[in-house]
Structure formats: C-alpha cells, structure tokens
C-alpha cells in the first residue's frame, strides 16, 4: 500500500512535469525548435504572478488569468521579432540565441528579485487533502495533474480538430507547400509560441505554489521538460504527459528508497526509456 501511495504521488507530480513540457512539445512539434530558455520563462512567469499578487493582493489563480493573454502576446512577439529570424535549415543559431536568452533572463531576474527564494501564496489549499479509500491525496497535486490533463486535451483539440491545427501540422510537414495554401509560416510559428507561453504561465502557477523558486532554477525545469518530451516521443502530447508521469514516478520511488536519489532516479528512468525505445514511447508515425 505504501508503494501504491508513492506511485500515485509520483503520477500526480508527473502532471507538473507535463505542464513544464507541454509548451516545449508544441513548439518542437510545429517548428523543430528547442527553446533553451523555456525553463527560465517559466520562472519569469512565476515572478510576474508573484508581482501581481503582492501588488494587488489578488489570488494567484486570478493573476494567471490576467497574465496569460499578456504572455501570449509576449511569446508571439518573441517569435516574430527574434526567433523567426534565426530558425532555418541550420539548427545551431536558434540554440545559441535561446541559450543566450536563458543567461540574460536569469541575470535580469537576479538583478530584479535577488537570489532569495520566493513562493506564491496559495492559502489553505496548499495543505488540504482528500482521503480516497485510505489514501491521502493533496488537493494541490490533484489540481496540478488535472490542469495538465486539461492542457493536453486542449492542445490535442486544437491540433487535430481545428483549421489552425491543420495549419500547424501542414507547416510542420512542409512550410513552403503550406504557404501555397495561404498559410504564412512565420505567423503560424508566432501563434504556436504564443500558445506555448500561455502554458508556461499555467506551469509557473503550480511551480510557484507547490515549491519555492529562485532565478536559477530554470535550466533544471527545462531538463525535466525536455526529458518528458523525449520519453513521450516527439510530436505526441499524450506522450508528453506519459513522459512527465514516468519521471514523476521514478523520482518519488527513488526518494522513497533514499531521499538523495530523487533527481537521479528521474534521469535514470529517462536514459532507460531511451535505451529501450530510442524514439520515445509514442513517436509520431511520420518524421
């Protein structure tokens, strides 16, 4: 029973990693771009929410609703004015540019907010739990996991049920033929990054409410996100959720054995999956 409980906690933790990863998965799926500053943008969004909360006293949940459209606009602009200029056949320039962004962002956050740990106030919800058949589940982890599932469902709906989603997939297949359909690839990329930044904002909410954060934790979030995307298989949103869950379960199992093994166990699980399934668990058929 104790193992079952541990695994369940791991599954719920996986929801957080899936939220870290979903935006990365979307952007990679549409334009084959890995944004190395992804984790830092999550941290930056957490500070933005913190700022709104401390200045107005509003609830973090309300702050996310207000921040999300602004973050969409920011992502759109970042793609339009910066990343679209560097993506192309060569994969190196976007990596260099987003790596630079990561460094700059960490320093700006450090200058503005100091290296002190911060936390989003979450009120009584952070300690509330539900008792389901003898197992205690925290409301916050449940909420995180539920949000991750909603985000994944929403992404799948957009991707597979709308004209925008068809344009995403067509552009990903072949941008120049997509332009013959009246699709402007640069505009499609900007919308994809905008959506990714909305998810970044949601991820930031749970990051900030569940644990403390400081300007330097971005790169580690990027790595969890990256591992979740790769485990799941490039281009599959449900795969990304599964990837997050696998890392989450591995981490809680690892820390149950020895608390120092938590992080390591996640990385080992990542390597094991890659050994068995180099293309991840649910790779998209065409690539």
């Amino acid at each position: 029973m104790i193992w079952f409980d541990t695994i369940l906690q791991g599954v719920l933790l996986g929801g957080l990693y899936a939220l870290f990863a979903a935006g990365l998965s979307l952007v990679f799926g549409v334009m084959r771009l890995v944004n190395l500053a992804h984790g830092d943008f999550i941290v930056a969004a957490a500070y933005l929410i913190l700022l709104m909360v401390t200045m107005t006293g509003m609830s973090p949940f309300l702050a996310v609703l207000i921040a999300a459209p602004a973050m969409f606009a920011f992502g759109w602009a970042l793609q339009t004015f910066m990343l679209n200029r560097v993506i192309g056949d060569d994969v190196l320039p976007p990596l260099l540019v987003t790596f630079g962004l990561s460094v700059v962002l960490q320093n700006v956050l450090l200058e503005s907010f100091s290296a002190d740990s911060q936390r989003l106030p979450s009120g009584p919800i952070s300690t509330a739990s539900l008792n389901l058949g003898g197992i205690n589940l925290g409301v916050m982890p449940l909420l995180t996991f539920g949000s991750a599932v909603v985000v994944i469902i929403a992404l799948n709906q957009i991707f597979y049920r709308t004209a925008l989603g068809r344009a995403f997939r067509a552009t990903s297949d072949d941008p120049s033929t997509a332009s013959l359909m009246g699709i402007r690839p640069a505009g499609i990329f900007a919308i994809a990054t905008g959506i990714a930044f909305v998810i970044v904002t949601i991820a930031a909410l749970y990051l900030g409410m569940r644990s403390s954060f400081d300007p330097n934790i971005g790169p580690a979030r990027l790595i969890y996100a990256f591992e979740a995307v790769i485990i799941g298989g490039l281009g599959s949103f449900w795969g990304t959720l599964a990837g997050g869950v696998i890392i989450g379960v591995a981490q809680t199992l690892g820390s149950a054995v020895n608390p120092e093994w938590q992080i390591l166990a996640g990385h080992v699980a990542f390597l094991l999956v890659l050994l068995v399934r180099p293309r991840g668990l649910f790779p998209r058929a065409v690539d």
Partner: peptide, 20 residues
C-alpha cells in the same frame, strides 16, 4: 504533389482553403 503526410485526405483538402 507535395501532400501533407500528417494530414488525412480530407484534412489535406480542408487545408487547401486556409488562406482563401
């Protein structure tokens, strides 16, 4: 032909009217 491999036949047709 340059069909979109990740789209079904019907989706390929539908994407043809994206810009018009």
């Amino acid at each position: 032909r340059k069909l979109f491999a990740s789209l079904s036949v019907e989706e390929n047709l539908l994407v043809g009217r994206y810009g018009r």
